[in-house]
């Protein structure tokens, strides 16, 4: 299927000041193109949770956001340190967020499950070199 548009956004670790900016950009672009609120909301959740996980848990990374005729793909990749036990990390309520991060409202352990729930197709792989998430939303 033809790729209609793609965007790349870099995300720095610990950048709480700009947190949410990438997701907000993605949302703006989707609105401009005219996607339904339902689709926009799902993608906003996926990108925000992905963005925050890069900021909080990784050494930095990026989100590739690709629009096709029949689907949208988000690739959320970082530079490490990776997730030891991906199955455990995917469990609702599991979080290693430290207390100062929890005080800001993060650390419910719902980010990865939210990404999974909002995706039609979800794939995660992780090694010490980085975590890779690919999330697909079907448009039909």
């Amino acid at each position: 299927m033809k790729k209609i548009k793609c965007y790349n956004y870099k995300i720095d670790k610990n950048d709480f000041v700009n947190a949410g900016k990438v997701s907000s950009e993605i949302k703006k672009n989707l609105k401009k193109i005219g996607f339904t609120n339902r689709i926009i909301r799902r993608i906003a959740v996926i990108s925000y949770e992905g963005e925050m996980n890069i900021i909080i848990h990784s050494e930095g990374g990026e989100i590739d956001f690709e629009i096709y005729e029949d689907k949208i793909i988000l690739k959320i990749n970082d530079k490490g340190p990776g997730i030891d036990d991906v199955n455990l990390a995917m469990t609702e309520g599991y979080s290693t967020a430290p207390s100062e991060i929890r005080e800001l409202g993060f650390g419910a352990g719902m980010g990865l499950p939210n990404i999974n729930n909002c995706s039609d197709n979800f794939n995660i792989t992780s090694s010490k070199n980085g975590t890779k998430i690919e999330s697909t939303i079907c448009l039909e």
Binding site: F16, V17, A19, G20, K21, S23, S24, K27, N37, R41, A44, V45, Y48, L104, G105, F106
Partner: peptide
């Protein structure tokens, strides 16, 4: 309704309208 006060609440609020 929340007790959170950090900047991130605005980002969340904006994203989910």
């Amino acid at each position: 309704i929340t007790i959170q006060t950090h900047l991130n609440i605005v980002a969340v609020a904006d994203l989910i309208d």
